[in-house]
Amino acid sequence: MTGSEWNHTRPGAALSAFRQWSRARGRLHDFGGLGARAMTDWSACLVEIARSKDRQQFALLFGYFAPRLKSFFLRFGLSPAAAEDLAQETMLTVWNKAQSFDASRASASTWIFTIARNLRIDLLRRERDPNLLAELYDGVVEPMPSDNVLTVEREVRIRAALDKLPADQADVIRLSFFEDRPQSEIANALDIPLGTVKSRVRLAMNRLRALVEDLQ
């Protein structure tokens, strides 16, 4: 099967169409459409992978997440080849660790994001010191001591808050979140002075936190 076929068969295709339509309306991005339904679809997919080691489901998940993971790693300045390797590595880890995914505590995308984040950290450490190779673990997220801090309801609130955030603040969050370099590029993208970026980021984050708390 080719990549484009995955696009047609994956869950939430209608939401994707909606998202493309909203993007076409001219906003830099849109968190709209990332509601509870899309979250549940991918979570169910992960649960199924854990339950029955279903390769078909894995292929669907791969079709959606692997290209976004590649973009994620590229944002952090990795070469295209390294970004692609790490995207595949992340998906392999997802397969191997699917059993530790708890759909009541996190959405699939948040869980996958934390795996990608940890693998990137491990990669950086190994680049700095190749001798670590033998000692490093598989970059897997270690579940925190059990509590229900990160629940799906909370993630629904986070997404609702992102939608409520004024567009310029949402853009600041989106542009700064996966950015490890000086913030000059963000300043360029938003056409604001560099000095303002930091305070804008802080302001946007505070506003977002307040919105999430209001929705409780």
Partner: peptide, 30 residues
């Protein structure tokens, strides 16, 4: 909270196509 934001932002990233056969390669390593 910020990890949840990370998950949401990950979904909004424009996908970058992987090279041909990337899925097959990964499937073979499962």
């Amino acid at each position: 909270l910020w990890e949840g934001v990370g998950g949401a932002v990950l979904e909004t990233l424009d996908p970058t196509p992987l090279s041909e056969g990337a899925l097959e390669k990964t499937l073979a390593r499962l």
